[in-house]
Amino acid sequence: MSKTIESIFKPHLKPKEVYQGGKNPPTSNGKKIYKLSSNENPLGQSPKATEALLKAAKHIDVYPDQTDIRLREALVKDFDGQLNANQFICGNSGSEIIDMLLRAFVNEGDEVIYSNPCFLPYAVFSRWYGAKQVDVPLLNTTYDLDLEGILNAVTDKTKIIFLTSPNNPTGTYIPKSVLDDFFTRIPKDIVIVFDEVYRHFADAEDYISGLPYVTEGHNVVAVNSFSKTYGLAGQRIGYCYTTQTIANYVRQIHKPFLLPITSIEAAIGALNDTDFIAETVKTVQVGRKYLTAEFDKLGIKYWPTQGNFFIIDPPLPEFEFTDMLMEQGIMVRPVSQFGAPGKVRITIGTQEANEALVKALKK
């Protein structure tokens, strides 16, 4: 009996929705376009990262470091020695770290819990490994985590729970008291993937990163990226930190020569550029206050944010709204694909970009 190649395709990889990243600005014909659609660094990239990258570019004819140890040692310093080098794992972006964790822990038929609206790769990547995807949505009016809903959704097949703080695309965060309660009640055989790529921008008094939970020995893997605070989105580099036990296990599937030499050197340079990091955080936090006040004046519905972006409920249908802003030279992003139908995400830019946004909104 004749068979087709499709007969050996994995059933859970049948054509479905795929993740689509943000677009680059179109040809502007000399018109200024402000890209406020991809949550990139408003100041560009770290000068020290650029210097390190250009120096490394003279040696791209040779293989890079076999392991990520030099970058991990730089991260130990960045975390003030609270973790050791073997608790860090680096990869080509935070997204690849998420893929690596799913590959390490999830088999076909296992369950993965996430909470929409959220970063779409949680669902897309889980499907690659045949996982049953369990969506416990954020609470509708506030976009807060539904802690009870997640706990009630846990079964003996649950392998990974995704928590994100601050959350993309909503900008909301998980208060310390909620996380403390969560970790006293969650089973000990579940991995908590704690996505904190926007943590540098958070200034809420009760915001907390994954670090204390890792040092206390909880099964937490905290995912970070160099794309936001450090301005290295184009280099595709990220990392996670976790307990020694989990790190030792996951490292078994870490490929040798994984990171390009330019990415390694740029990341180390960026970690050392404390002035650039501080200026980036200040720019975002000042811009956040400015836009909050302007949105209030204009009567635009938005959600308080701890990230470098806002999610808003636009006064027009989302695509009509984004098209009209594009006509004014402002790129923003509709986020139906992230589980927030009708909503639009706006990245906080430089003061010039923020003022241009407000001018376009008024018009």
Rank of each mutant, 00 (worst) to 15 (best):
F9H: 07
L13P: 02
K16G: 15
Q20Y: 12
K23H: 10
P25Y: 02
S37V: 10
L53S: 12
L53R: 15
A57H: 08
H59T: 12
Q66M: 09
T67I: 01
E73K: 08
A74P: 00
Q82S: 12
N84L: 08
S93W: 06
E96D: 14
F105W: 14
N107T: 03
F119K: 05
R127H: 02
G130D: 01
A131R: 05
V134M: 10
D135Y: 01
L138M: 05
L147Q: 14
E148H: 15
I150A: 06
L151S: 09
N152A: 14
V154M: 05
V154T: 03
I160S: 02
I160G: 07
F162T: 02
G171D: 00
T172N: 10
S177N: 13
T184E: 15
V193F: 03
H200V: 07
D203E: 14
E205S: 00
E205T: 00
E205L: 01
Y207K: 05
G210T: 06
L211G: 13
V221T: 07
A222V: 09
T229L: 15
Q235E: 13
I237W: 06
I237S: 05
K255Y: 07
A270M: 04
D273W: 06
F276T: 07
V281T: 10
F295V: 01
G299R: 01
Y302H: 03
Y302L: 01
P304Q: 05
Q306W: 04
Q306N: 05
F310V: 01
F321I: 12
T322I: 14
M326G: 12
M331Y: 11
G342D: 11
I346C: 07
G349N: 03
E352F: 00
L361M: 11
K362H: 03
K363H: 13
